[in-house]
Design a protein around this nucleic acid. Sequence first.
DNA 1: CCTCCTTAGTTCGCAGTACCAACAGTTCGT
DNA 2: ACGAACTGTTGGTACTGCGAACTAAGGAGG
Lengths: 147, 147
Amino acid sequence: MTTTTTTKAGTESAFATALVRMSHVVQYVFADVSREHGVTPQQAQLLCVLTGGPIGMTELSRLLHLEKSSLTGLVDRVERRGFVTRVSHPRDRRACRISLTPEGARLGEKVHGEICARLDVLGDEMPEADRLRIATALTGVVARYAT
Amino acid sequence: MTTTTTTKAGTESAFATALVRMSHVVQYVFADVSREHGVTPQQAQLLCVLTGGPIGMTELSRLLHLEKSSLTGLVDRVERRGFVTRVSHPRDRRACRISLTPEGARLGEKVHGEICARLDVLGDEMPEADRLRIATALTGVVARYAT
DNA sequence: CCTCCTTAGTTCGCAGTACCAACAGTTCGT
DNA sequence: ACGAACTGTTGGTACTGCGAACTAAGGAGG
């Protein structure tokens, strides 16, 4: 399908470019904060997700967009560090739910808070209205992706 | 179960949350498009950066936020696939510049175009003015990060 | 009870990512 | 010419992520 869809110069989109750049900044902030706390970004993300309560592997793999086989290793490493534990399901002996240890909960909250703080700083010079408008618009974009 | 942490701390920032979610969407789009073209996201990003012209390793490592040692391997793998070549600098025998092969240039353009297209689709239901405002605001945020 | 099918999570092998420390070769300042 | 500074590489380690094959445990239906 090498149709003449003008894949040449017509692809200059300030909107898309801004989104991509923004994404990079978020990644860097995430990486910086994670590193300062001695975990990898993926491990930090796992902790953040779990602050909402224990979750099973299958559900977790859906939330993190990871294959279950990838998740096993990730949980292994985080468990080895003492931040989560596998809690066996009382009714279903196959299943387990990943639960934060007190230490893991503390770290998760801290990392989450710091990431939010650093991102907020980036927007604290624009009017509150603009900030709100961006948040709303981006949320709409995210919702549209799920379609 | 639901820990009802709504009355917890004041670290609930819709702005930061929206940025993080948006970042994930961009990551997924990037991953999808890259995979469909048989390269990894990192390799695709390298190709995209190089569409602006050949760049040396040191400069490239700054652009991609990678250690030079990490970059060596990345360039190796992309070179093995035939998408880039190391061109030795005529004046400085230490340096080399990474240049796209015709095939690499084609792939880079294609990937870049498709990523932009898919991101644009996510915003094509909001008014042009809003889209522009978001782009401008986000660009400002990105600029502020560099500070 | 006993198959058959599904689900939950794991194991294994592989390719890739990324860091750090140490290194070789080159360039350049003095 | 000597040493500092720079360019890119190597080697070693840990982590990421996938797919295929697997074990164990539900959940029908006969």
